[in-house]
Design a binder for these strands. Sequence first.
RNA 1: GAGCUGUUAGCUCAGUUGGUUUAGAGCAUUACCUUGACAGGGUAGGGGUCAUCGGUUCGAGUCCGAUACAGCUCACCA
Length: 874
Amino acid sequence: MEIASKYDPSEVEDKWYQYWLDNKLFHSVPDEREPYTIVIPPPNVTGVLHMGHMLNNTIQDILIRRARMSGKNACWVPGTDHASIATEAKVVAKLASEGIQKKDLTREQFLEHAWEWTHKHGGIILEQLKKLGASCDWDRTCFTMDEKRSESVLKVFVDLYNKGLIYRGVRMVNWDPKAKTALSDEEVNYKEQQGKLYYLKYKISDSEGAFAVIATTRPETILGDTAVCINPNDPKNAHLKGKKVIVPLADREVPIIEDDYVDIEFGTGCLKVTPAHDVNDYMLGEKYNLEILDIFNDDGTLNQYGLQYAGMDRFDVRKQIEKDLEEAGLLEKVEDYTNKVGFSERTDVPIEPKLSMQWFLKMEELAKPALKAVMEDDIMLYPSKFKNTYRHWMENIKDWCISRQLWWGHRIPAYYLPQGGFVVAETGEKALALAREKSGNPDLQISDLRQDEDCLDTWFSSWLWPISVFDGINRPDNPDINYYYPTDDLVTAPEILFFWVARMIIAGYEYRHDRCFKNVYLTGIVRDKLGRKMSKSLGNSPDPLELISKYGADGVRMGMLLTSAAGNDLPFDENLCEQGRNFNNKIWNAFRLVKGWNVDASIQQPESSGVAVKWFDATLAKTIEELNDLFIKYRLSEALMLVYKLFWDEFSSRYLEMIKPGYRLPIDKKTYDATLGFFDSLLKLLHPFMPFITEELWQALEERKPGESIMIGQLPKIMSYDKDLLSKFDTIKEIIGGIRTIRLQKNIPNKEALTLQVIGEYDNAFDPVILKMCNLSSIDKVSEKSPGAASFLAGTTEYAVPLGNNINVEEELEKLDKELVYLQGFLKSVTAKLGNEKFVANAKPEIVENERKKQADAESKIKLVKESIATLKK
RNA sequence: GAGCUGUUAGCUCAGUUGGUUUAGAGCAUUACCUUGACAGGGUAGGGGUCAUCGGUUCGAGUCCGAUACAGCUCACCA
């Protein structure tokens, strides 16, 4: 049969993916088997696949495929997230490019545009995942804003409200003036900024010509000042006690208050207090009952309290006010200053601390079982270093601001009554009934009620994900949720440990009284060669689909996984995909070799092949055991490397070379059948990592029935194996290596047969293998080697290859001298250890025994080397 | 600023309760090989005073302390 010498993934991948789909091999329904469940971290519905998704989903696919091949009923639930801020921002931008302003649209009109956008772009990312080979149960695809998920969200909101855990309140929130919404603390990134520190002069009310000097980075906020604060223990500002000062430009008189919050050392020790625009000032404001002056509009421009600056943007005002203060002689000096400014994670504009009415969820009690679960290892984090981080956050958890001033999302199910007050209910009808009861007015109509304008934070829907994808909120006793929950593994990025993972754990205990998953595998961040995070704005991220078309999905999957220990960042390098592709080609060519042989049932199995089969059988068994252990520990990179070496070094370089028949000669049936069996096992072990090529070759390995697939085959089981055989074979590997080294050094072609002399203890059971692998004509046990032989040691046995007159005595002596020096140095260290009475007295007996053995070994080796040197010098 | 991780070959990482020859792997690199599965290949090499200093111990990459550097998390001085 004719097989191309290079593997071409493009011909193979789509074909088998379609085959898997056609045969419904990804689909899972509850049955009597043990379930194994993963819910996908839902990507943004209008998002595009990036390298982080590639890594994340490759890992999930490996886990789910391996579980499926281990006899479990594996279910991987895919889906997308409505991503309220990100999606709304995209829709707003798209409308703006068409000359439409959001403010000119009604809520309904805007949502129509948003849904249109979602339908157009939504799901692209899921199609891209298919290219990667993701074996998701597509029949179960969910969306955080589809009907069932929306119903779940509202139901949970109402429930938490009725439990008294959701409340409404005026709080200082992080305001995003671009998205015009509040953000949770987790959505704010602090960045170092090069700014200025302005020293402003506040005139003291009753003392002519006297000033209090105040340092600030935000001079535009003086218009909202309602006090100046000093530390009561600050001698240099003691003269200000009880005085009043005039806010520059605003010409308002404000009191001087005293609080030890103020840092005496910073600036002048005088702090301007702007309760509406700074979290700490707000606390001071509450404490001293100060007036609150909000000077900003929602978009970051100044309002009427901004006086002459009303209507201007906050940053323009900063520049202008600097000039105006300068002119008024109220600016003492300006210094360069570096400080940290909070930026919106979504829109990347500086956030503005702002007072506003928001909805909050009380977290303290909810967090307790979630903290306990992780600390007591009911839920395992991989790597476990994140336990500390998790604990720190959970122990200091603050109430969660769950409202967002957006339209794209789940609208808060709170309804305001005409006469004030509100009711909370899943639907308008239920709200109306409650409202009639509350108001005592049976004639109240639904049109009299006004629903809250805000939406819920996106995470308020995704925190229910492991439950809601099985409809476990709406129907808490349905067969799916009972079977698939708790899920097994969650694979996600550490960046969203608090946003998402922690909150899912909380929701799991609140709504199922059980953990939502057993293990959390935290991937690293994919970085470029310079160590920068891959991002769209930097343009340093390769296009995953291009990579797939260049290296094949299997090649890219392997490239992603080769250097990604859990929790470690992944320094991505295309070379790794190349390595993956090369490995594909290696597998392909091994297959080509095996399938190219002619089988002759009449010939006997050569002795060397019999030995090889036994040896590889044991090697395979040992590797399966090790592999299992690595998977239990979630050491996937190492697991891949282990199978890689098994296939490349042990199977291709050793086993196949051992059993390979001579050119154009047939192979015996016994060996051939064993080899096909090995190939079958190897493909199965490789399948979770490289699904496509393994399916292609498995299908070609033997005649298959329609619908059969490697992906539902069972992995080879762990079996006992001959450890003694493997350790003996390690010596054989050494001998083969030694002879090859001699060939290389003496420049002896492989075609030229050699003989091998053995001096010392030796088991000849493997002679046929050595003879074949090294092209030897004989192996002879001798008591003294031939003069002019090159020799080496393996264990304490000496092996010599007679070379006639070919030997270079000088070179040989030099080599032996080097070895002698090493051995003597080694012996010295061992002897010193054994000469130490304390060591002999204190160390465990087996350790001392081992040292003695090392000593004896070294001594006999030294003796052999010395003899060789003496022989050469004759 | 506080806390938590980490620092092992050019690169990415293993190294399990301290002892298994004087520390391993993959990639990269070097030399040689090339009609017969695979040059996207084969064979064999080279490459590390385990960040630094000190301590515990018969014995430290491994345990303890300090320092330096890096990363992460939290908090934040206007």
